[in-house]
Design a binder for these strands. Structure first.
Lengths: 351, 351
DNA sequence: CCGTTCTGCGCAATCGGTTGCAATCGGAGG
DNA sequence: CCTCCGATTGCAACCGATTGCGCAGAACGG
């Protein structure tokens, strides 16, 4: 028994497998791909040899020849926030199940970083790219990556061509408008009238959510104007100012851009002695897990984050296989009423 | 002007760049790599040509020849939980800055999935692999991936060779013991005696944390035995049973495996009418952002998650460049006292 | 017994860069 | 004027798989 087991043994090549199975490299290749032209016996012999040698194909070589990498690119703003984590998780899982690897980069809402990400994807030749709410314009995106291999996961944004209603190929959206409408309706039903919207500074302030709050109020014939607050860029920063500003002239309810902001605001308001929901009702958006165990538990519009990731991956993979991008979808959202908003009045004699 | 701008234009190759710069492919290649043997003039001409043509090198071809992919693999249990999200985020950022792409897969604490992940990494020829608290044994890990290209991010676990104290090459750990000790000390200082530990079912129950709680109690001369509870596998599941079990014979304080569990327990206990910290103190572990805005805000042992990810990436990259794995580190943790534990007694005349 | 058709397999080109080695050129040295 | 040398650049092999095409041998029909 010679030195053998601990020398940095050379990587096993297809050639080695072929040799062990007494066939040529081409036959080995075809056998492993289950090519019907290879006799069943040979196929099994090759597979056996491959298994015995722990053969691992070299993706670079394969990709070079086949012009496919079985790799997907995922660009999102931030891996730390619960929603994107959820999306990334589902995306990766779906991709993995379909035999794809995923290369992820967090763009941090920065133009240069996002462009770099796209370049990285291009170099590595990802078969497709999914982008979650980029700061790059959809136009630039489509310029930089093959539009037929591009999926946009685009919650709440106006700059998308033909939004809502008709599904746009390759675009995954959520029905934010319905969600916000339901939230505002709920607030109105519990007797709130003076409702304000709190925008997150990380967002363009022309969000559909803000607009929908205003629209719903108008439709329901509320005359008090909707006030709008906007939180500083980083939701984890000291919220003092904003909370104080709000507390100075407290609305009856606050609709927040998302749960993170809502939770953060609840904390800041508590600091100021403002009680939720007694003094002010709060509703969030996203339905992150922590919203369910905050104190008080947060009323929110739950978004199917996992579903978004899953659908994004599977749409992309279809696009890769079929060459054409499947229609996008607008995923439904759901309001979940918890403790941060007042409960419905026990059927007081209205009218 | 012929059809030209909207036909699916062929991808630009190095050859094209070379042609435009009137040099050979080899020269172009060297020029782009800033090879000093190429005259400065030629180098710039080539770079200019490359820029004008928007040349993007083909990573597959390069990797095939160079046997490097400038890609790192990251295997972690779950992209959804805040701690791992943080680690992944920092890891990706550091890698990107050093010119590496990262391929991530969530192993979901499943043997088969983790093995698959390692295979994916092997096929894609990642230059290095970082693994965050795997369910695979370190031994198996080192068998399946080149140990010189492997970094283990291993919070709280016993199965690691030579843990604590002396840094193990390629192993990033946190000083859990100190953290837990500080937490228990704090609890004792606030007058708690009957202290229980709550283990998370997702963990092997032989965690260092559990052991340290017991040890600290013993060292401080506490005679009441430490009780241990263990939470069901998925921390987001209905906590009813566990909370009820705990409430039935309430300890004075609860040390929880992590913040998620702590937060979740606080919610469940609140449901039962148990007040924190008046009826029971609670301390978590990790220092996730939400721990800072829960109600009551959670006392916790903060772990430098970002630092872990960053260090993991940079260690790995060093290993790739130098061929040898740098020493690992044991990162410090820090207790942050908030509202979920009683405050220190105002210097009562002890002893 | 010979020509045809399959069946099963192997040869060699190919994917797009990188790199060892040789070639070329101008100028210095003899 | 010839040789030598260093500075530049080009030729061609190579990385490891996939695949079009052709070939051998078996099976089959007449």
């Amino acid at each position: 028994m010679a030195v053998n087991s601990d020398r940095p043994r050379r990587r096993i090549l297809l050639k080695d497998v072929a040799q062990r199975a007494n066939v040529s490299g081409s036959t080995a290749s075809r056998a492993l791909a289950d090519d019907q032209r290879i006799s069943i016996g040979t196929r099994e012999a090759v597979k056996l040899a491959a298994a015995e040698l722990h053969y691992v194909p070299n993706a670079a070589a394969r990709s070079l020849r086949v012009r496919r990498t079985r790799t997907l690119g995922l660009l999102l703003p931030d891996l730390r926030d619960p929603v994107h984590g959820q999306v990334a998780s589902a995306f990766e899982q779906e991709a993995r199940q379909q035999g794809y690897g995923v290369m992820v980069v967090a763009g941090e809402r920065d133009l240069a970083r996002e462009r770099l990400a796209l370049r990285i994807f291009a170099e590595h030749g990802t078969d497709g790219v999914a982008i979650v709410s980029s700061v790059l314009s959809p136009k630039e995106l489509r310029e930089r990556v093959d539009p037929d291999r591009l999926v946009l996961v685009w919650p709440d944004h106006r700059s998308l061509p033909r939004r809502n209603g008709a599904p746009v190929p390759g675009v995954i959206q959520t029905d934010d408008a319905s969600g916000v409408r339901a939230a505002v309706d709920h607030l109105l039903d519990t007797g709130c009238r003076r409702i304000a919207y709190v925008e997150s500074g990380v967002r363009a302030s022309n969000s559909i959510r803000a607009a929908t709050v205003a629209a719903t109020l108008r439709d329901r014939g509320i005359r008090e104007p909707m006030r709008t607050f906007v939180a500083s860029l980083d939701a984890w920063r000291a919220p003092g100012d904003l909370a104080a500003e709000i507390a100075a002239d407290l609305p009856e309810a606050l609709v927040c851009y998302d749960d993170q902001l809502a939770l953060w605001l609840m904390d800041a308001l508590r600091n100021l002695g403002v009680r939720v929901p007694d003094d002010v009702g709060i509703v969030g958006f996203d339905g992150i897990p922590f919203a369910g165990i905050s104190n008080p538990r947060l009323t929110t519009v739950a978004v199917p984050s996992s579903e978004m990731g899953r659908v994004a991956a599977s749409t992309l993979i279809h696009a890769v296989h079929d060459g054409a991008l499947p229609d996008g979808v607008v995923l439904p959202v759901e309001i979940v009423v918890r403790e941060s908003t007042r409960s419905l009045p026990a059927s007081s004699g209205q009218g």
